[in-house]
């Protein structure tokens, strides 16, 4: 007989946020200070909700004087990101420095390699004045077909064109763009090693489990304090910790491509408040029919959604695994 609580929309809400925060900061202290013997923490701050909550947790765990915030903008970053990150650092009394990474990315050929692939799809694309992004189509998540990526370009007059991305071009655009996250992580480890601090990884539960991160990029770090929290719960922590309203109310973006792009259109295909609840039902083994009844969906669509979740979790396992080394058992 099942011991599951009846599924409700409120089932993922944290009942005692203060206690959850106390547990997390206690564990952060234990891991960083005692286990890793590091003296504090470095956090990359983007002005997004996840890094802001991690930053606030680090301030509580180690004290503001033992935390360094690093803003890592590049030429495609939104100016809002830096403004919000500065507001966050000021709120918690933590030193924040800016490391502009455009030069490093140019050195890697990040923009050139990306734009080469974009031009194969749209020869008229002008990277100097046009914007671009890639994303998935919304209708796919309740289907048995996996999502297909589209490339969108926007010219200087605001005219939009999009086209399905062939495999070779998709892979090159993603591989080139991933220099951004990996360059940021290199810079965070520079500061962490120079200060004998640990790097705080900022992915939330969805990013971890659905593979919405760059391996050895934003998926790296020494501790991940919100790695097991749903986005709804991250927002609960943000309110409790006093993260500035401008950050809490900001729509989560990828801040990776030159055109504005939400995380929902790039990857998740569902608003986070729905994704959280469906994923909770999926990972806790609720029958699709029970979840469907509460969420106003049909059981068939929820079954397809759960199959998509399963596929996503399986196909992204590679991203979460450390290098496999058990090849010799002598």
């Amino acid at each position: 007989m099942s011991t599951l609580k009846p599924f409700t929309k409120d089932i993922i809400l944290l009942e005692n946020v203060a206690a959850v925060v106390e547990n997390i900061i206690g564990q952060m202290r234990g891991d960083v200070l005692q286990r890793f013997k590091r003296n504090g923490a470095v956090v990359g701050i983007s002005g997004g909700i996840d890094s802001s909550v991690c930053f606030a947790l680090a301030a509580k765990a180690f004290g503001p004087e033992k935390v360094l915030g690093v803003m890592l903008p590049e030429k495609d970053s939104s100016p809002d990101s830096e403004m919000l990150a500065r507001e966050l650092a000021a709120k918690f009394g933590i030193m924040a420095i800016k490391e502009e990474i455009t030069g490093a990315l140019s050195g890697f050929g990040c923009y050139e390699r990306r734009d080469e692939a974009v031009k194969r799809v749209f020869p008229e694309y002008d990277p100097a004045s046009w914007k671009m992004k890639i994303g998935v189509r919304q209708s796919g998540l309740f289907s048995n077909l996996p999502p297909i990526f589209y490339l969108t370009i926007i010219d200087s007059d605001g005219n939009v064109k999009d086209k399905m991305l062939p495999a070779r071009d998709y892979l090159q655009i993603v591989a080139a763009s991933n220099f951004k996250q990996r360059t940021r992580m290199s810079m965070l480890y520079y500061h962490a090693e120079a200060l004998h601090y640990a790097v705080i990884g900022t992915p939330n539960k969805h990013e971890q489990e659905q593979g919405f991160f760059v391996k050895y990029g934003d998926g790296a770090g020494d501790v991940m304090p919100i790695g097991n929290l749903y986005k709804t719960q991250v927002y609960q922590l943000a309110e409790y910790l006093g993260v500035p309203k401008g950050i809490i109310e900001r729509t989560p973006t990828t801040d990776t491509y030159s055109a504005e792009q939400t995380q929902e259109e790039f990857f998740y295909q569902l608003p986070f408040h729905l994704m959280d609840r469906f994923w909770y039902g999926f990972e806790n083994g609720y029958p699709p029919s029970e979840v469907a009844a509460v969420m106003g969906e049909t059981p068939e669509r929820v079954e397809a959604l759960f199959r998509n979740f399963e596929r996503k979790r399986n196909t992204t396992e590679y991203l979460r695994l450390p290098p496999v080394r058990d090849y010799y058992h002598g």
Binding site: L145, P146, P147, I148, F149, M164, L165, P166, A167, R168, Y170, L171, R311, N314, T315
Partner: peptide, 11 residues
Amino acid sequence: FDSMGFIMLIT
């Protein structure tokens, strides 16, 4: 097949 497999199949 996953998402990448689908894109490659179409190609």
